[in-house]
Design a protein around this nucleic acid. Structure first.
Lengths: 107, 107
DNA sequence: CACTTACGTAAGTAATCACTTACCATGTGT
DNA sequence: ACACATGGTAAGTGATTACTTACGTAAGTG
């Protein structure tokens, strides 16, 4: 969920996601949509989106076809709906997380 | 909207937002919830959240009281709902794409 | 006035990010 | 086998980020 939010924070990735929302597209077609960035950069963005589960990848010969995964987006929206208002336990959990991180940063 | 998504990409800021979701809190109280960061860091996070419109700030003597603005969060959710499937924007982009790589993809 | 509390801001730093170029692997058609 | 098209990956770079310490500022209290 963290990965999904980080992925969506980048405008270019949002645009990519919109491109492949309704139809499957090969990486090159997606890259062609952007005149100010290289194919390599788009490939890296696609990796991030895939890692975040926001797009699926399907191989077809030498091409890789990408498409959005609306289910994952729905999960994200549900997360945004419930995260802030879910009981006091979550507040305590947040405090615990903060404490745990304290030890990790030691190095 | 871009600022809101960027703000939410940071876990610490999500925690802050959750803390001030139900009650108004002064900056110090918020900072006290985190053992592993300084008050200064929290103050900077609060600035980002305020810039993004996700929290409101109210002055009370020497204190600054922060609270989440659920309205802005609702806008964000609406954005996430519609952005990918919004006709006009998407059709315009799709048309541009189609012109750019005329029939390059599947046929 | 001095002292304290609350809190933003400046400056600097290490890590991360988005990007580039160069390269490599794989699959298709001749 | 060869050439070509597709596209991921490595390495490096400049910009941004999240953090720190140090300081400044505004409002209360004696």
């Amino acid at each position: 969920m963290d990965a999904a939010l980080r992925a969506l924070a980048e405008p270019r990735r949002r645009e990519i996601l919109r491109l492949v929302w309704l139809e499957e597209l090969p990486a090159t077609s997606i890259a062609d949509h952007f005149d100010d960035v290289t194919r390599s950069a788009i490939s890296q963005h696609l990796s991030v989106l895939k890692e975040a589960g926001l797009v699926s990848e399907r191989r077809d010969g030498t091409r890789r076809l990408y498409q959005a995964r609306p289910e994952e987006m729905r999960k994200l929206r549900e997360f945004l709906d419930t995260y802030w208002t879910t009981g006091l336990e979550r507040l305590r959990d947040a405090a615990e997380t903060a404490q745990r991180d304290k030890g990790v940063t030691n190095g």
